[in-house]
Simulated scan of single mutants.
Amino acid sequence: MEDNMAMRNDSPVTEFILTGLTDWPELQLPFFFLFLGIYVVTVVGNLGMIILISLSSHLHTPMYYFLSSLSFIDLCHSTIITPKMLMKFVSENNIIFYSECITQLYFFLIFAIAECHMLAVMAYDRYVAICSPLLYTITMSHKTCSCLVGWVYILGLVGATAHTSCIFRVIFCKNNLIHHYFCELLSLLKLSCSSTYVNEVVILCFSAFNILIPSITIVSSYICIIISILRIRSPEGRSKAFSTCSSHIAAVALFYVSASVIYLQPSSGNSMDQDKVSSVFYTIFVPMLNPLIYSLRNKDVKVAMRKILERRKFI
């Protein structure tokens, strides 16, 4: 018996088991309906935002071009994670094959990294709009906007490729139980029976770049924005300027705080429950809240939505 166990522990892992969000049976069904509802709202909200922006000509501006890109990222981000998570709530068998796990990790990293940089691009857009309004159309030309969005996805691909390539050098032979609801990078490394020093260095370097650099860009942009707003004499002008930034600030705070808790501290400092709670915020709640934040607090979006609905009444 002991010999069989030893052979099993030394054999390479070909599949993993995801423990899911909770092991309590009485919470499985309520959580299923809760997160199913969140996913439906996420898909409808982000897809609706993309369609609304594409159909409304007065929303064809750099700000809404970036917002449409953010909605696409959030839609993909949530779709990569949530359906597999929902299956765990209604099925006792939550096996994920090695290739499927690595694929999920790869695409999750692409869109997670892309969201970091997209939020920074949106902050820069607001900086130009408020601090240099006369040069806005020239600075944020169609070519510039396309290049910025292109770089966002390139950085996502580079980061995801680096992390995934390092995962291939890791040997999994101890156990195949991932204490998470998806193939999260740090949770995978905890199963390694080989050295993960290189992986940890890569995680620290890329996390610093993908979180700190956009954070510095965002903070710098808003310092300049606040200085410019304080120079505006009319209260109406100040209020309008603040309103264009408040939605973005809320989205940034939700995403960066939850992501930083996991990736900007040593892995030994994180508990599994803390990782899961933080991950739920930036993988499930943030993609749902972003379109709600931008639509409920944005007059242009409300007007566009009203026009689309009125147009459909006459069809």
Rank of each mutant, 00 (worst) to 15 (best):
F89G: 02
L177I: 12
S221V: 00
S141W: 10
S132L: 09
C147F: 14
S195N: 06
V149A: 10
S146E: 07
F97G: 01
N199C: 15
S215R: 09
S132R: 14
F97R: 03
F182E: 02
P133Q: 06
L155K: 04
F172T: 11
L212M: 15
L212D: 09
L177F: 07
S141V: 06
H163C: 14
V198H: 06
L119K: 11
V158K: 07
L86V: 00
L135S: 13
R126A: 05
A129P: 02
S194K: 04
R126I: 00
G150P: 09
M85P: 01
F89H: 04
S195E: 01
F107Y: 15
I178M: 08
R169C: 11
V128P: 07
I130R: 09
S194M: 08
T139I: 15
V90I: 13
I81F: 07
I213M: 11
G159T: 10
S195Y: 00
L105Y: 08
P83W: 00
F111A: 01
I203A: 01
I95E: 01
T161E: 11
F182P: 00
M122R: 13
C147M: 12
I81Q: 08
K174G: 15
T144Y: 05
L191P: 01
L134A: 12
I216Y: 10
N199M: 09
C116A: 06
L177W: 10
S91Y: 12
F97C: 00
T144M: 13
I102W: 10
S220V: 06
A114F: 03
M85E: 02
R126W: 05
L185R: 07
I171Q: 13
Y136F: 11
I110E: 00
S99C: 03
L191E: 08
H163Y: 15
L188R: 09
M87N: 08
G159L: 08
L105D: 03
S187F: 07
L189D: 11
E200M: 05
S165M: 14
I223V: 01
Y222I: 01
Q104E: 14
A120D: 06
Y106G: 03
H142Y: 09
Y181E: 00
E100V: 10
G159A: 14
T144Q: 12
F89I: 08
I95L: 00
C193Y: 02
E200C: 04
P214K: 09
I110A: 04
I154F: 13
S220N: 03
S132E: 13
L204R: 05
G156M: 10
H117F: 13
L188C: 06
C166D: 07
W151G: 08
G150E: 11
K88T: 07
